[in-house]
C-alpha cells in the first residue's frame, strides 16, 4: 500500500520534473528522507534483540516490520535517485543497499524451508554452538562402548586418557556413558575393535562428511556385515557405534544447513553497518553542498 502511494507520487513527479527526477528536488529529497528513515528503522531490530526482556512488542512483529519496511525502502531509494547512479558515493551507497536487500531476501527465503529440512535431514539436531563439544563426547562414548567389551585400546590413547579423566570427575561423567574398560577382550570382539579403529574413530575425528560412514546406506550395509561377524553378546556395542556414527552424520548435516541458514547474516549485517555510514556521509555531504 505504502509502495503504491509512493509510486503514485513518483510517476507524475518524474514526468514533470524539468531535469528529470533528482534527489535534490523537494519531492526527491522527501523520498530520500523516507528511505533513510526506513533504513535507520531496520537497525532497530538489532537493538530490539539486545533488550529481549523489554516490553517492546512481539519479536515476530518486529521481524515483519524489518522485512516489509526494508523492502519498502527499495522503491523509495530508487525514486530518490531517479533510477540513476550519480557519483561514486551515491553509487556505492545504492550498490551496498541493493546487496543488503538481496542478502536479506535470500535469508528470508532460506528461513522458509531450511528449518523444516533440517528437522528431517538431521533429527539428532543439537545446539549449533555445542556441536564440536557434543562430537567430542561422541568420540568418548564410542571409545567406552568398544573398550567395555574389547579392553582398553592403546591405539586410541587420547580417548582413553580423556575417558579416564572424565570418569574421575563426577560433573563431567554425567555427560558420557561412564562405562569401565573390560579387563580382558571378549571373545570374538576383534572385528568390533578393528571396525572402531579403522572406520568409526577416523570418521568421528573428521568432518563427518567423508568416509564410509558418511553415507547412511553404506553405513547400514557395514553394520549388517559387522553384526554377522560378531557374537550376539557384542551386538549392543556394535549398535552403539552405528548409532554414534549416525548422530555424527546428523551433526554434519545440521552444521552445513546451519551455515546456510545463518551464513547470510555475515554479509547482511556488516553491509548494513557500512550502509549506515555511507548513508550518513551521503546525507550530510549532499545537503551541505546542495543547500
Amino acid at each position: 500500500m505504502l509502495g503504491a502511494i509512493a509510486t503514485a507520487f513518483y510517476v507524475p513527479y518524474a514526468r514533470q520534473a524539468p531535469e528529470g527526477p533528482r534527489g535534490s528536488t523537494a519531492v526527491g529529497l522527501g523520498f530520500g528522507v523516507a528511505a533513510a528513515a526506513l533504513m535507520a528503522f531496520e537497525w532497530l531490530l538489532n537493538a530490539r534483540k539486545r533488550v529481549p526482556t523489554w516490553n517492546l512488542g512481539k519479536a515476530e512483529t518486529w521481524l515483519k516490520g524489518h522485512i516489509w519496511l526494508g523492502l519498502l525502502a527499495v522503491p523509495l531509494a530508487l525514486f530518490h535517485s531517479g533510477f540513476h547512479l550519480r557519483g561514486t558515493l551515491a553509487a556505492a551507497l545504492m550498490i551496498v543497499f541493493v546487496v543488503v536487500i538481496l542478502s536479506g531476501v535470500f535469508g528470508l527465503v532460506l528461513q522458509q524451508f531450511l528449518p523444516r529440512l533440517m528437522s528431517l535431514a538431521a533429527p539428532g539436531e543439537t545446539i549449533y554452538e555445542q556441536i564440536p563439544h557434543v562430537i567430542e563426547t561422541l568420540r568418548l562414548d564410542a571409545y567406552e562402548a568398544v573398550a567395555a567389551v574389547c579392553g582398553a585400546l592403546a591405539e586410541a590413547e587420547g580417548e582413553r586418557a580423556e575417558s579416564e579423566a572424565i570418569q574421575s570427575d563426577p560433573r563431567r561423567a554425567r555427560q558420557v556413558l561412564g562405562r569401565r574398560p573390560a579387563a580382558a577382550p571378549a571373545e570374538g570382539s576383534a572385528p568390533l575393535r578393528r571396525f572402531y579403529l579403522e572406520t568409526v574413530r577416523p570418521f568421528l575425528m573428521g568432518d563427518g562428511r567423508h568416509g564410509p560412514l558418511a553415507d547412511a546406506r553404506q553405513a547400514e550395509r557395514l553394520a549388517q556385515g559387522l553384526l554377522r561377524l560378531l557374537p550376539p553378546v557384542l551386538h549392543d556395542a556394535a549398535g552403539d557405534l552405528i548409532a554414534i556414527a549416525a548422530e555424527r552424520r546428523d551433526y554434519a548435516v545440521q552444521a552445513r544447513l546451519h551455515r546456510w541458514l545463518h551464513g547470510w547474516i555475515l554479509l547482511h549485517v556488516p553491509l548494513a553497518a557500512a550502509l549506515l555510514v555511507l548513508l550518513v556521509a551521503h546525507a550530510v555531504l549532499a545537503l551541505r553542498y546542495t543547500y
Binding site: G124, R174, V176, D240, I244, E247
Partner: peptide
Amino acid sequence: MATRLSSTKLRAKRIEL
C-alpha cells in the same frame, strides 16, 4: 540394539550449561 543414544536426557546432559 543400542543401549544409550535414544535417551533424550543423555543428549541434554551433553550440552554445556
